[in-house]
Design a protein around this nucleic acid. Sequence first.
RNA 1: GGCGGAGUAGCUCAGGGGUAGAGCAGCGGGAUCAUAAUCCGUUGGUCGGGGGUUCAAAUCCCUCCUCCGCUACCA
Length: 533
Amino acid sequence: MLGPFAVSKTFYITTPIYYVNDKPHIGHAYTTIACDVMARFKRLDGFDVKFLSGTDEHGQKVAKAAKDQGISPQELCDRNSKNFRDLLGVIGASNDDFIRTTEERHKVACQALWKQLEANGFIELKKYAGWYAVRDEAFYDEGELTKNADGVLVGPTGAPVERVEEENYFFKLSAFQDRLLKFYDTNPDFIGPKSRFNEVYSFVKGGLNDLSISRTTFSWGVPVPGPKGDDPKHIMYVWIDALTNYMSALGYPNTSGDYAKYWPNVMHMVGKDIIRFHCVYWPAFLMAANLAPPQRVFAHGWWTVEGQKMSKSLGNVVDPNDMVAKYGLDQIRYFLMREIPFGNDGDFAEAAIAGRINGELANELGNLAQRGLGFIAKNLGGELPSPGAFTAEDTELLKAAADIIGPVREAMDKQGFDKALDAIWSVVRAANVYVDRQAPWALKKTDPARMNTVLYVMAETVRHLGILMQPFVPTSANKMLDQLGVPAGERTFAHLGYAHALKPGPLPAPTPVFPRYVPAGEAQAPKPPKGAK
RNA sequence: GGCGGAGUAGCUCAGGGGUAGAGCAGCGGGAUCAUAAUCCGUUGGUCGGGGGUUCAAAUCCCUCCUCCGCUACCA
């Protein structure tokens, strides 16, 4: 199956904008790593890629936090936005841009979109009276309220509510039910995984209410544009502000340049908590402005920690900095992409992480490279030998390594990271079997020419694996390719296959690429070999 | 309450009318190039319970139980 992006060869991928009041944790890292893997994969596959991340900086909670700390909201945003920007570096993200909703380019884009929606007749001013919870920044219906133990009226989240009468602008979301359903029908790949598609579909089918899109009770936001400059009373409320970031970063309302190049060839990666906003509101906003909806939204799951929900009160919130320091960056990236089918929830457990690192990265892949390159270093003076004629076994392995990009690409087009790695691992395992069967250490005495061919086939297979693993473990994969002497410009998927095979000659001294992980406090002593007396 | 998903080996999961599968863990063996890694073999399951359709059901139908997601509503 061709992916939705196969036609135009540009690919725009976004993380959500992270709320500056939050502290970066493994969940943020997960979303961003998934985007980064996609972005790197598409670049290696010949796409012109733009990868965006950023921070969401408006709202009452930010204003209040700043006030509590005696600083301006902008100061607070500057400080906290940096935490997320720093995280990108920590996890090796290759983003091309970083957008902040307090930037001028974003204000311009939001106001332009607003004016377009207004001109098209989809915004109206309505008096609204309702129960408002400051803590949740949300209105609740009368029926949703309960009295808590102290007799205070609270919303479904337990947040106290107050009666508020406000004049708000509303977006006529209700007008889009049919158009959205038709859009889903004709774009069955719009939402992944499939189960989320069905949820969104049935939500829209159940009917849509108009959406309040402005606030007058606080001022930390993008001003609503009026006929003569900004409306002094209203600021835009959350989603119309937040979602627009994806277009602000393309230069909207300028529809030439990046906008023309990348929109709507975009994929939004989101957590499952914000799927409705991306799959219902966002396409509706865009349709209302005569713009094309995005091509795909993928909602990923949550991580528990050792089987428990991650929460501040449990004190088990995983700091990405700690994890990277403890296990290694590529190791964490690999674990997060490999452990679960993307879209499912997963468990961030020491035993599982160690198992993946040692069993797969160190033992199977890392050791494969090291046993081959180490052999060449020790027995052939570090010279990659010239191969002789290939046997059926040689050809079979080389072909498997060269052809696996097909299934890998197919998996990646559906964000099946685990499936892609599964496919790559079929080659890793085949290569280890090959080495055992060919036994170059035995050929050393009996048939050195054949030994040379076997070592060459090994090295060439590792070259393929190095190229294929770059999106997932960029540093380590490139280290592998360095050790094979593969030039930096010859590491894309176009260089898979025998046409770009390794040239015999001197290689740098090999060192193991994926160290084994030894849990802190555990003895370094390895378990005794099987059959040891 | 409604809609949807799930329940298969110790663990994580795949399969979806025709002899129950993979990875990990376990057990046995081989190899000794390598990060004590690798390779081969193998134990293990009346496929959530019950009923039905069928020559044949993990698979289709009914029903019940348990878990999860979305959604609605009541006081």
